[in-house]
Design a protein around this nucleic acid. Structure first.
Lengths: 198, 198, 198, 198
DNA sequence: TATGAATGAGGCTTCATTCAT
DNA sequence: TATGAATGAAGCCTCATTCAT
């Protein structure tokens, strides 16, 4: 009877996604739909008004988080922050031990991607976008003379993603290794690798 | 007629572990005990004659796989294979795309380690052992003059583990990136990093 | 079309409790949740929409039965039935051989209370309430001159509970002892113990 | 091949029964046969060499415990201990809070007796024997002038059993009620009820 | 006499999803 | 748009008992 207000609909979807995100951080992708509904303060049946399935929520969430990151990085660049600083700041945040719960989600998605084609696609698309974005930032940095022009942007972007994945894994494998030490080491390495030569 | 071999018991345990391994590769750590029993051709209850719980199976499997790797590497060194070659061969195998299912297990364990202390311990202990082992191999290589003596063994070992984790993630994030190309790149990097200088 | 009665929910809960009660009477506290669901004509999972666990059902049932008894006794007193008659009628019903199945439940709870703290609490709380209630009734009887004023109400209440427990046990230990005979004996004893003296 | 030595056989049976008793005290009649075997240091299959089933163990245990008690009481009387003291001592021991685990077993058996005819028979037989024994002791006491000759022995025996059951239940229902107080009260009551009048 | 491997039914509980209202 | 009742398969594990040796 009532007209669907697409704006309201989108708001609710976002609200649910945020609730789901909190649940996933707490309990991993195994968090139950019931828990998500409780967190979003909606009824179990209603969830399916906004999402086809739990998997759809995961997919939407992955997309949303990716968009957020993209947005953040673009803003940083637009704001005139040097490319290298932007990247290093992003790496620092993404590997901050206090966000271990997020690491877990990524690793779960990596694992799941070996089993379900949908997740594989999601992950690969997302990774490609991140790579492109980083490459763009690097090119921008090269244009500004902040970054070594001999570096191959796409390849360097891949390496950066690898660095983040490796650091995250290390945080979980050896939480007692002097965290700042390793981080500093990597920051130095990345600066040397990418920074413009005198 | 009296006591029966503990040997037989151990064999059966191994048989079950192998079955479990196949199930985990197929379906991840979520593989059901029922599936494992079916694969091992035993009744559902009988599993608990050999293992206290499903978690105990995972732990036993992790230990077993670690022991296998240790054994393999030690044999390689003993056989006179240069340290660097031994390591590179190991890295190559561990990141071989054809073993993506194994990657999934590692990533699941990393994720789980953020939520259950038992898994955290398992993972950290296992990582520490691997690091020590690699460090030993590197020291051996330094003693033989095959590896740059200025390299700090423990640190290099950590980096190597990170390289494996990163490569594995990359295989899943971007399966289409010319695999051999990336691998070659990394091999070169590692050789430069560790190899003895002229 | 919107909110649905909490009344309906409560009704269903009660329906399930009644079904559970029948099952427990038949098979003891060991009655399976499957049996309870079948008796309540609901699916196995649905039980957990209404109760957190099987233990919660037992607890709710204990509370409900206690409330029923309280209600019944209070009504009897309010209706002007003499305190002693009310009590003797209650004792008579509680020890009626035709309700041996109920005896079993009590004894199971007594046994269980030595092993699980939750059951111990449940049983002790429930016993305390019964004692208080009986004491109140006795005091009321004393105020009316129906009951010997020198009797200590709480102590007498404890004894009455003991009498019920003992009679129940006796019904099971020696079902052939002329039931009415023993009952009559006890009724006489209680009347003498509590009744107002000329 | 080997001749069965009936003596050895009986010893082993007793050893198993003792182990079972310890398990039942710990975990109730629900204690598993596996636990019993472990406690008796025999294999699971071997248990069935000595007992037809778990129920048979319970039955044998009940009989054994009954025999023990009978033996103890007879010895006490034979040793010249006054009948009333023997009885009160027995009641005191049987209701000692430190033996709550034994209470649990009795209550479980009472409960079970409402459901399985075998247990009902066991319990009733056992109760009858105890009653007879107590009656005999009381008669003996009457003959010695220690016990009121107007007391009907069988009836008094029944009441004594009831007192024990009630006290045991009370220990579990209200462990905080000053135990010694209640016990003293009952001892007084029993002495008055049974003791020879001046 | 003794072992321990093996069974398989059944216990409690969880969960994504659907449906009537 | 919203509710929450309802489903039923599946998950991990326990246990009395039997069987081959």
């Amino acid at each position: 009877m009532r007209k669907i207000d697409p704006v309201r609909h989108e708001q609710k979807r976002r609200k649910i996604l945020q609730a789901a995100w909190r649940c996933f951080l707490r309990n991993g992708l195994g968090a139950s739909t019931a828990e998500i509904c409780a967190e979003a303060v909606i009824s179990p049946g209603h969830l399916y008004h906004y999402f086809e399935s739990k998997d759809a929520i995961v997919a939407a969430l992955a997309t949303a988080k990716l968009d957020e990151a993209t947005e953040r990085i673009k803003r940083s660049i637009t704001a005139g922050v040097p490319a290298l600083d932007t990247i290093l700041s992003e790496v620092g945040q993404l590997t901050d031990s206090r966000r271990r719960a997020e690491f877990a989600l990524l690793f779960e998605m990596l694992a799941e991607s070996t089993r379900t084609p949908a997740m594989a696609r999601l992950l690969q698309d997302s990774s490609r976008q991140v790579r492109k974005l980083l490459a763009t930032v690097l090119q921008h940095g090269q244009a500004c003379g902040e970054i070594d022009p001999t570096v191959e942007p796409e390849l360097a972007a891949s390496v950066l993603i690898g660095v983040v994945d490796a650091l995250r894994a290390m945080r979980l494998r050896a939480p007692d290794l002097d965290a700042s030490n390793v981080a500093a080491l990597f920051e130095t390495a990345v600066r040397r690798l990418l920074g413009a030569r005198a």
